[in-house]
Structures are given as structure tokens and as C-alpha cells.
């Protein structure tokens, strides 16, 4: 606690910015190449969806899957590798002895993975969408403000925040193959979330149907907003915030205790 308060006292946002710049300049080439590759991938995917999508509805779902899938995949890779210099020899000595607080390091990661990345990704998505207009002028841009499968967009934002939180933790916790191991951990995480949701369900409707409904939701449940009402329920939101806060605290602790051995 004393350590935490001393970190807060010497906190500097200027150093957080310096850490972000340090991250950007260190990985500039990889980031730029990845951005170009992503743009091309999104552009080709959007073209294919429009060309072969049977209906507007199907096209919407494909766009949605593309957005969420890419966000999840890229965000997880970006987050799990954010602190890779602390993990890999011999660069870890220079990285860990850089004068800054653990809390500043964590905040820089949060800003990059939860703010800068979604913004950059959205810009690339929009750019690739506009690039398809010469081919299909009637193409409708579907963005985060739609919800074709009825999960509820607050939960989608939760996923966009939850993914980096989970993978930042994974990148610090697992020394080898952190991405794969974090995926496995995230399955466990999802299991816990499902169990909690099921428990909430059971309180509302104490029958076996509630569990069955959660495991194999009927399409109607998405359509009439039942699923959205679960994921957007205050309890679920509060629980998610508590879980994410715990994971961020765990990441802070791992950063603080990181050693070069």
C-alpha cells in the first residue's frame, strides 16, 4: 500500500506519454506494416462480402463478425505483446530500469490498447470501406452502432475493453506462449462469466430451462432482446467492472514485481 501511494505521489502523465512514444518508435515498422496488411484484408473482405453476401441482413452480420473478430484478434495480439520487452532477454534490463512507475507503464498500455487501437482500427475500417465504394456504390457502412445478433452494444464495448485487460495480464503472467495460454485462461474467464450469468438467471427463474437457454440460446431470444437484457443488466455490468478492475490490479502487481532473472 505504501508502495502504491509512493507511485501515485510521483505519478506523471508526461512520462505516460513518453512511454507511449517509446512503444510507438520501438515497434513503428511492425505497427505500420500491420496497419497496411489490415487495411488490405478489410478491403478484400468487404468486397467479397458484398459480392457474395446473399442479403443485406447477411452482409450486416458478416461486417459485424469482421469487426468484432478483427478487434478481438488484433487487440489480443497487441495487448499480449505490449510488455514483451520486459519478458525477453536481453532487452528486459533496459526496459525494466527505465525511470517510471509501474502504474505509468500500465496506464500507457491501457491508453494504447483501449483508446489508440480502437480509434486507429476504426479509421482503417472506414478507409477500407470507402475504398470499396467505387466498386459497390450502394454498400452500407455498418459500424459499432448496430447489433445484428442482439447481444447489446454495451457488452460489445465491454468486450473491446475486456480483451486488452485480459491479454495485458496474460502477457505479464505467462513467460512462454502467452497468447495461447491467455486464450485458455479466457475460456476459463468466460466460463466464470457464464456461471455468474447462469446464477443470476437461476435467481430470476429457478428452473433447468434457464441454464439450457444460456448454453444454447434460441434465435428468438436474440431477436426479442432477452440476451441483450442479460448482458446489459446492472449486475452483469457491475460484475464485469469488478472483474476487469481485479485483472488490472493483478497486472499492476505483476509489473511491480517483475524481475530480470
Amino acid at each position: 500500500m505504501k508502495s502504491f501511494s509512493s507511485q501515485i505521489q510521483s505519478f506523471s502523465f508526461h512520462r505516460v506519454i513518453s512511454l507511449i512514444l517509446e512503444y510507438y518508435h520501438r515497434d513503428k515498422k511492425t505497427l505500420l506494416i500491420s496497419a497496411i496488411a489490415l487495411y488490405l484484408f478489410l478491403f478484400c473482405s468487404l468486397l467479397l462480402f458484398k459480392r457474395y453476401g446473399e442479403s443485406d441482413k447477411e452482409n450486416d452480420i458478416l461486417q459485424y463478425a469482421l469487426q468484432v473478430g478483427c478487434i478481438y484478434l488484433i487487440s489480443s495480439i497487441l495487448s499480449v505483446h505490449y510488455f514483451c520487452t520486459l519478458r525477453l532477454k536481453p532487452g528486459n534490463i533496459s526496459a525494466l530500469s527505465l525511470p517510471c512507475n509501474a502504474i505509468e507503464r500500465l496506464l500507457s498500455a491501457v491508453i494504447v490498447t483501449m483508446i489508440a487501437f480502437p480509434v486507429a482500427y476504426s479509421l482503417i475500417y472506414v478507409a477500407s470501406y470507402f475504398s470499396t465504394l467505387p466498386f459497390f456504390s450502394s454498400y452500407t457502412l455498418r459500424f459499432y452502432n448496430f447489433d445484428p445478433i442482439g447481444i447489446g452494444w454495451i457488452s460489445i464495448i465491454g468486450t473491446f475493453i475486456g480483451t486488452p485487460v485480459l491479454f495485458l495480464w496474460g502477457g505479464l503472467f505467462f513467460k512462454r506462449s502467452p497468447w495461447i495460454k491467455t486464450i485458455l485462461a479466457s475460456i476459463l474467464y468466460s466460463g466464470i462469466n457464464t456461471a455468474i450469468t447462469a446464477a443470476v438467471f437461476y435467481v430470476i427463474d429457478p428452473t433447468w430451462d434457464s441454464f439450457k437457454f444460456l448454453l444454447v440460446p434460441k434465435e428468438a431470444a436474440y431477436q426479442n432482446g432477452e440476451i441483450a437484457s442479460i448482458f446489459n443488466s446492472p449486475f452483469y455490468i457491475v460484475w464485469s467492472i469488478v472483474l476487469l478492475t481485479c485483472m488490472l490490479l493483478a497486472s499492476y502487481h505483476l509489473l511491480k514485481e517483475k524481475e530480470v532473472k
Binding site: 508502495s3 510521483s10 518508435h25 513503428k28 536481453p90 532487452g91 534490463i93 525511470p99 517510471c100
Partner: peptide
């Protein structure tokens, strides 16, 4: 040293035997 915060680190610099410098 267990504090390892800015106040501790900003007055200290280590040049290790093995090191890795970024591509810049």
C-alpha cells in the same frame, strides 16, 4: 529498491554486459 518507482530509478543507470537496442 523494492519500491522501484521513478524516484528510485531516475538517479540510476545500468549498462549491462548483454543488451538490446531498438531499431532506430
Amino acid at each position: 529498491s523494492k519500491e522501484r518507482n521513478y524516484n528510485y530509478l531516475h538517479n540510476l543507470y545500468i549498462i549491462p554486459e548483454e543488451f538490446d537496442l531498438p531499431d532506430m
